[in-house]
Amino acid sequence: MPRITVSVDGVTYEEEVEPRLLLVHLLRDRLGKTGTPVGCDTGNCGACTVTLDGRSAKSCSVLAVQADGSEVVTVEGLARDGRWHPMQEAFHAEHALQCGYCTPGMIMAAIDLLRDDPDPSEEAVRRGLEGNLCRCTGYTNIVRAVRRAAAEMSRVPHERAPGAAEGREAAAS
C-alpha cells in the first residue's frame, strides 16, 4: 500500500493507504477529523470542502494518495488560540447556518473566495459559492456573512492558517 505524508491542520501524519481511499475518509475515519462531513458522491454539494495546498478542494473528489506531501486545512484548523476565524464569527453573527452540515465546507469555500476577491459583491459571493449547497438557509444570510467577514478581514487581517500559502502558480513550460 502506498505510504503518504500529509499535514492536516498543522499536524503531520504518515499513513499507509489503499490507493482508492478518499481524502475525506482519510480525514474522518483514519485521522478522526470528523469536522469535515460527506454530503454527496458526485462532487456537487461541497460539504467536504477543505483547503489543499492553499486552495479549496472537495475532499470527496481527491484520493488520499493525491494529497501525499500536501497541506490540508479543515474547518477544525481555522481557530487561533481558541479565537475563531472571522468567517466563523461572521457565520455565527449573521445566522448563516441552521443544521450546520454544509457549514464546514461553506466556510472553507468562503475563505477561499475572499482570497481572490477581498471585497466581493453579493453577486460575486453567490457565484463563488455555487459549488456548495445548503438546504436550510436559502443562502441570504450566508451571503451576508461572507460580506461581513470580508469587511472584518480587511480591517484586521486574520493570521494565516497553516497550509494557507499562496496557491501554486502555473509555471510556463
Binding site: T34, G35, P37, V38, V75, E76, A79, H92, L97, T103
Partner: peptide, 13 residues
C-alpha cells in the same frame, strides 16, 4: 453554532 462552525459536531457518522 459553536460546535457547528468549528467542526466539533457529533453527526451519527
Amino acid at each position: 453554532d459553536a460546535r457547528l462552525v468549528t467542526g466539533r459536531t457529533m453527526w451519527t457518522d
